[in-house]
Amino acid sequence: SSTVVPTSLPPYFIKGSIIQLADGELKRVEDLKTEDFIQSAEISSDLKIDSSTVERIEGSISASNFAVVQFSVGEHRAQVSVEVLVEYPFFVFGQGWSSCCPDRTTQLLELPCTKLSVGDVCISLTLKNLR
């Protein structure tokens, strides 16, 4: 299956953007920690955090500034591919923001970012109580 995430770079990844956690606390995007996402999801009534392991990263066929990242999602290891701009940041457990092209992410967004690699475990969301 394939999921399309926003193909233009959303404004909330720009350094200094104010993010509201589920308990109302405000933080800058560059200051977010793994625990902030986990605790926010615990409070949330409809969202839960899933672990998404990067299985493959490829350049896109359609355009050079896009990458296709294949994830193995959740306990059932569902295969999900997303096509994203190479500078699109994902949050890696215990590590922080990472992208296919961290230099570009830092250049465009000033967001401190490391290189997204195969084996990295990213934070993703799914719906609670699907059945």
């Binding site: 909330y12 993703s124 969301l125």
Partner: peptide, 19 residues
């Protein structure tokens, strides 16, 4: 100053069962 909800930063990856 705009304030964004935490969940907008996280990609929504809905797992699909491949039974």
């Amino acid at each position: 100053v705009p304030v964004f909800p935490w969940h907008s930063l996280v990609p929504f990856l809905a797992p699909t069962q491949s039974d």
